[in-house]
Design a protein around this nucleic acid. Structure first.
Length: 681
DNA sequence: TTTTCTATCAGCAAC
DNA sequence: TGATAGAAAA
């Protein structure tokens, strides 16, 4: 119908905003989007438009008058949360001020910030990551007199995490660590700190002990949505279950459950079916992402798993090109092959660098690739892995901020008390920590007691140095807590402690490293600046910043969002992403499946297979696999065999490429010899 | 007593 | 390769 007179422009804009759900979605997707009341289980196969369904579903809720503040969407990574938010904004054209889209952990922090006092912590608590946690375990263990070889902090940390998250319990085998666990917990509380597991466990405790708090959240969040449901832990499930008042939708794919090592439990899908018997289940089985070749390969692999929900994923995308498997001589050859192929495909198919994803099983495997990319001048970003905030220089600065916010945070205090060096050495620290052990107080309290006491055993020099430190922190605290402009204040602090000279001093032999670290600090300050200038940020203070920061990973820092760069990452980090061209490197037995998974037994192999499945299904058009015949490991070179999973790909989909024989090796030697000649002349 | 140097050890995945 | 713990040097 043509209108008699033109609509005013705002009306036209409104009309163009209106979403035609039927036209945009297939039947299953449409059903999933429009079922907003009651429990809903969406089984979303790889590439079936899961993100699309979630964003449209939220848009649909808003269209039907559900207020933003009653919607809660939980994800696993910040990246996913941010992406979801952006897509919804784009789709609806609305500002999202009251909607809660966040990771489980960030949501836990939010709850704890409100009410943690009821559990005996103080408001500005610190959040300990693995490194902090392990340090605390080490310190506590020493105090309890554990010998160095019975103190494998890595293992103990995993044990404690397992205990806390409820998927392990005390058996006589590890009873010896029970006391340590209790002391560890006491330590956390003394330092006014919580660890990652606490971010889920403590809110549950809070809800149990204070039903009024729970009720507040239940009243508010009438509509709950959980993404990557197959990766929720028992706790996270419980957490969600407590909050849910009935309108709860979970989206997941049991075939993509790859996080069981941190408590993820895809049995939760069955649990959900039990707990919400009147649920509606919708399967999304049309794959919009990959070619039929890639999908068939993925199905061939995953069909070897026994314990899974049957799915019939299909794609109407045409068969596309075959999968190529390369068998390079070693990891250097493999890296060169990846770099060369990327350049070649860029030229031949008019691809951009960000069309490529290079997936590895473990972070250590990225090294050779990075070197090859640098040599070949291929721009790349690495995501996942050690977070930006785990770099020493960043961690130092953050530790300062932590101690400024929370004086009792011993772990962070110890990290910075003599960084940069200010003459406070082992002996002094021993003395003050002995006192705090006796008095059951934090180091900060102990230091101040020593400074005030007449009969302190400390030398005058030590006292003076400590006093200088205390003054520094006190002054900085006064600065930081007053008024706005956090980034400027942090910059001023970095200048005050003269961190730059410290870096130059420490890295005399490696000027490049020092400069790089300097740049990192700059980008930290920049990121604080962007954060506090964000108009959506209502609380740009120090506490808010610290609460947020521990939960971020490296990709959350990049401003340029990796545009125009090859994406290099672990398979785990690639969850939920897709790339036109994908390389899976190191497809060797012992890497994938990882050697340790064989030792562990029970279902670990199936998880490794799911991991491989996830990797394959990231690819849209073209998939390359490579498996080296030799690889450098630690100090020695190890012979490698291709991954057994490669056999599970139907052979007619695959082209094998043997290495380009020894001729190349000879040539390489010749070239090297020529180069040497040139240099010696 | 604090700082610097050297040797040794260990390496899966991440909020 | 990097971090860390213990030994030597300042």
């Amino acid at each position: 119908m043509t209108p008699y007179f033109p609509f005013p422009s705002f009306l036209i804009e409104y009309r163009s905003m209106a979403i035609n759900y039927r036209a945009e979605l297939n039947d299953e997707q449409y059903a999933a989007v429009t079922t907003i009341d009651g429990p809903l289980l969406i089984i979303a196969g790889a590439g079936s438009g899961k993100t699309r369904v979630i964003t449209f579903r939220i848009a649909y809720m808003l269209d039907n008058g559900i207020p933003q503040h009653s919607i809660l969407a939980l994800t696993f990574t910040n990246k996913a949360a941010r992406e979801m938010e952006e897509r919804i904004k784009e789709l609806t054209g609305k500002k999202l001020q009251n909607m809660t889209i966040s990771t489980f952990h960030a949501f836990g922090v939010k709850i704890l910030r409100q009410d943690i006092e009821r559990l005996g912590w103080r408001e500005n608590f610190s959040i300990y990551d693995e490194v902090d946690r392990n340090q605390l375990i080490k310190d506590t263990g020493r105090e309890l007199g554990f010998t160095a070889d019975s103190l494998d902090v890595y293992k103990i940390g995993a044990l404690f995490s397992g205990i806390k998250s409820g998927h392990r319990n005390w058996e006589n085998a590890n009873d010896q660590y029970r006391k340590l666990y209790e002391e560890y917990q006491a330590g956390l509380k003394l330092y006014n700190a919580v660890d990652f597991d606490d971010l889920i466990v403590l809110p549950i405790k809070l809800f149990r002990e204070h039903p009024d708090v729970l009720e507040k959240y239940r009243q508010r969040y009438r509509y709950i949505m959980v993404d990557e449901f197959q990766d929720t832990s028992i706790q996270q499930y419980q957490f969600m279950h407590m909050l849910a008042t009935g309108n709860v939708a979970v989206v997941g794919d049991d075939d993509q459950s790859i996080d069981s090592w941190r408590g993820a439990n895809y049995e939760n899908i069955r649990m959900f079916e039990r707990d919400f018997p009147d649920l509606r289940e919708i399967k999304l089985e049309q794959n919009y992402r990959s070619t039929e070749t890639i999908l068939e390969a993925a199905n061939g692999v995953i069909s070897h798993n026994t314990n899974r929900k049957e799915k019939a994923l299909w794609s109407g995308n045409g068969s596309g090109r075959p999968i190529e498997i390369y068998l390079p001589e070693n990891e250097t050859a493999e890296a060169d092959f990846v770099a060369d192929t990327i350049r070649a495909v860029c030229m031949a198919d008019r691809r951009k660098y960000d069309d490529f994803g290079v997936l590895v099983r473990a972070n250590t495997l990225t090294r050779a690739i990075e070197e090859a990319f640098l040599d070949a001048n291929i721009p790349y970003t690495v995501s996942g892995g050690t977070s930006f905030f785990q770099r020493k220089e960043i961690n130092d600065i953050i530790s300062y901020l932590r101690v400024i916010a929370n004086h009792d945070d011993d772990i962070n205090l110890l990290r910075i008390i003599n960084t940069p060096r200010r003459g406070i050495g082992r002996r002094t620290i021993e003395q003050i920590s002995e006192f705090s052990g006796m008095r059951k107080c934090s180091l900060w309290t102990s230091i101040n007691a020593h400074l005030a006491a007449e009969d302190s055993p400390l030398s005058e020099k030590a006292k003076a140095d400590l006093e200088e430190f205390v003054n520094l922190i006190t002054e900085q605290r006064a600065q930081m807590l007053g008024g706005r402009g956090l980034s400027k204040k942090v910059k001023a602090m970095v200048d005050t402690i003269d961190y730059l000279s410290y870096l130059v001093q420490e890295y005399q032999k490696n000027e490049k490293a020092a400069r790089y670290k300097l740049l990192n600090i700059d980008s930290l300050i920049n990121s604080i600046d962007t954060w506090e200038k964000n108009p959506d940020n209502f609380d740009p203070g120090l506490f808010a910043y610290l609460n947020r920061i521990t939960l971020l990973s490296r990709d959350d820092m990049d401003d340029d969002s990796g545009k125009g760069k090859v994406n290099l990452m672990t398979i785990h980090a690639s969850k939920g992403l897709e790339f036109p061209v994908v390389f899976i490197i190191g497809a060797e037995d012992g890497i994938i499946p990882h050697a340790r998974s064989l030792e562990e037994g029970d279902g670990s192999i199936e998880e490794e297979r799911r991991l491989f499945y996830v990797a394959i299904t990231r690819a849209r058009d073209k998939l390359f696999l490579s498996s080296c015949s030799r690889r450098r490991k630690i100090q020695s070179v190890v012979e490698c065999v291709p991954s057994p999973f490669l056999q599970e790909i139907p052979p007619h989909l695959v082209e094998y490429h043997e290495p380009a024989a020894e001729v190349e090796a000879d040539k390489a030697i010749e070239i090297l010899a020529n180069m040497k000649k040139r240099f010696t002349i």
